[in-house]
Computed example of a mutant assay.
Amino acid sequence: MALTFELDPSVDLTLRDGILDLWADVSNAGGSVGFVPPVSRETVRPELVKHFTAMAEGRTRLLVGRDEDGTVAATAFLAHNTHRLMAHWLWLYTVMVHPGHQGKGYGRDLLTAAADAARGLDGIEAIRLTCRGGEGLERFYGSCGYKEVGRVPDAIRVAPGDDRDDITMLLPLGRLD
């Protein structure tokens, strides 16, 4: 069964807790979403608060995917670029699909929903994201239409002696003239 996506859902305790659970579960399964396992919900909470603050300030939008039970199964945050000369593209970050739902095409569905959401925003022509090298993520994003446009070698230190590239990917959405 497909996920149901919602842009800018109302944030309540159920949604907050669902995202905390998702983020901890993805991180603990080895997902590249800003943490190295093991993590707890309390470890993730300050980062989620930062995301919610950016949402309250109108700088960030939340896209949530829920499974057939209504449980948060996927998320992505769309962040407006604050530089006046770069307002025609946005950042996509904290892209997550619950490990129990991986392999079902939900990641591809999430990226499609994010692109559709971005196309619905005035003046947005492209989406940029970064991903951690060494995980094969650039191949996945590439299969979804993103192109690698930059790479900083060894920019992400996962652990002592385990440095990974920081890879920038771009999805052109086309001009909205």
Rank of each mutant, 00 (worst) to 15 (best):
L63T: 05
L63I: 08
V64C: 02
V64P: 03
G65S: 03
G65M: 03
G65C: 02
R66C: 07
D67A: 12
E68W: 03
E68V: 07
E68D: 09
D69K: 05
D69N: 06
D69M: 03
D69A: 11
T71R: 15
T71D: 14
T71L: 15
A74W: 02
A74P: 02
A76R: 01
A76I: 11
A76K: 04
F77P: 04
F77C: 12
F77W: 13
F77K: 02
L78Q: 05
L78C: 05
L78R: 06
L78D: 06
L78G: 10
A79G: 08
A79E: 14
A79K: 13
H80E: 10
N81Q: 13
T82M: 12
T82G: 12
T82R: 14
H83E: 10
H83M: 13
H83Q: 12
R84K: 14
R84P: 12
R84A: 14
R84L: 15
L85F: 06
L85C: 01
L85T: 06
M86Q: 13
M86V: 09
A87T: 13
H88I: 11
H88T: 12
L90P: 01
L90Q: 09
L90H: 02
L90A: 09
L90I: 10
W91R: 10
W91P: 00
L92C: 13
L92A: 15
L92I: 11
Y93A: 06
Y93Q: 13
Y93H: 15
Y93I: 01
Y93D: 11
T94E: 04
T94M: 11
T94P: 00
T94W: 15
T94Y: 10
V95R: 01
V95L: 04
V95C: 04
M96K: 07
M96T: 07
M96V: 04
M96D: 06
M96Y: 04
V97M: 05
V97L: 04
H98K: 08
H98E: 06
H98D: 15
P99G: 10
P99N: 11
P99T: 10
G100Y: 04
H101L: 13
H101Y: 14
Q102M: 12
Q102R: 15
Q102L: 04
Q102D: 01
Q102E: 10
Q102T: 15
G103K: 08
G105Y: 00
Y106R: 06
Y106F: 14
Y106Q: 07
Y106K: 01
G107P: 02
G107I: 01
G107A: 02
G107N: 01
